[in-house]
Computed example of a mutant assay.
Amino acid sequence: MHPSAAPGDRLAALGTQLIEIHDWLREELARLRAGLDPAGGPPGGGDRLRGLRAHCLTFCAALTRHHTGEDAGAFRVLAEEAPQLRPVLAQLAHDHRMVDAIVRRIEELVAEPPTGDPAATERVRGELDGLGAILESHFGFEERRIVAALDALRAEAGDAEALFGLAPPAG
């Protein structure tokens, strides 16, 4: 990933950059889910899980970094500059805790996948499906409710990486 703008420069609006990050996370989650399909990897549930472990852990770390970054960065700044958004920010932070619980379950499931256990693949698939549903709702709500406020932030508030935990992906 690389930023849409040079560090400290806002060539793209922060709201647009947030949506770019969300879109990248959606795509990565879709790739993970596709990798669980028999055509997406080697035969055998455990073998597929083992092959997906690195990608899954990378995705989970990026998602956690994004939500932690928002809580400490963008949400803190928005709470100060747009206090009317505090209830929305509290709901989004609550969502982050729910997502974190699912991410931890996924990390546990892929940490030591049992070889040849199709039920393990299905447990991971179920958690990824649940994560996808929650993230889609969360991202959509966040994009509808705070993008305009992000676009109105002063440049001194920080760049996308400081505010969102991740830089927008290469387009």
Rank of each mutant, 00 (worst) to 15 (best):
Arg145Val: 09
Val99His: 04
Ala62Asn: 11
Leu57Tyr: 08
Leu109Val: 11
Ala82Trp: 03
Asp95Pro: 04
Thr58Tyr: 05
Gly171Pro: 13
Gly69Phe: 00
Glu161Ala: 13
His66Phe: 00
Gly15Glu: 06
Pro42Gly: 10
Glu112Thr: 15
Pro43Ala: 15
Gly41Lys: 07
Ala5Leu: 10
Phe139Pro: 00
Glu108Ser: 11
Glu142His: 02
Ala72Tyr: 10
Pro87Met: 13
His96Asp: 10
Asp95Lys: 04
Arg65Glu: 13
Glu161Arg: 15
Glu80His: 14
Ile102Gln: 07
Ser137Phe: 11
Leu153Gly: 12
Thr115Ala: 15
Ala119Lys: 10
Val99Leu: 14
Phe139Met: 11
Thr58Lys: 08
Gln91Met: 13
Phe59Pro: 01
Arg76Lys: 14
Ala120Met: 09
Ala30Met: 12
Glu28His: 06
Arg145Ser: 13
Val110Gln: 02
Leu135Met: 12
Glu20Val: 00
Gly165Gln: 03
Pro38Lys: 06
Asp47Tyr: 09
Phe59Lys: 00
Ala82Arg: 12
His55Asp: 15
Arg123Gly: 02
Arg76Thr: 13
Ala152Arg: 14
Asp71Tyr: 08
Leu18Trp: 00
Leu14Met: 05
Phe141Thr: 06
Pro7His: 09
Arg76Met: 11
Arg33Ile: 11
Pro168Arg: 05
Gly40Lys: 06
His2Lys: 10
Arg50Met: 11
Ala62Leu: 07
Ala74Pro: 00
Ala12Met: 13
Arg97Tyr: 05
Asp117His: 09
Ala90Leu: 07
Thr121Ser: 15
Asp23Arg: 14
Pro42Ala: 15
Arg104Cys: 12
Leu153Tyr: 11
Pro43Cys: 10
Thr115Asp: 14
Leu131Ile: 08
Arg125Asp: 07
Ala34Cys: 10
Glu28Ser: 12
His96Tyr: 05
Ala72Asn: 15
Gly116Ile: 07
Asp47Leu: 10
Ala74Asn: 07
Leu135Ala: 00
Arg154His: 15
Pro118Met: 06
Val124Lys: 00
Ala157Ser: 14
Arg48Met: 01
Leu29Lys: 02
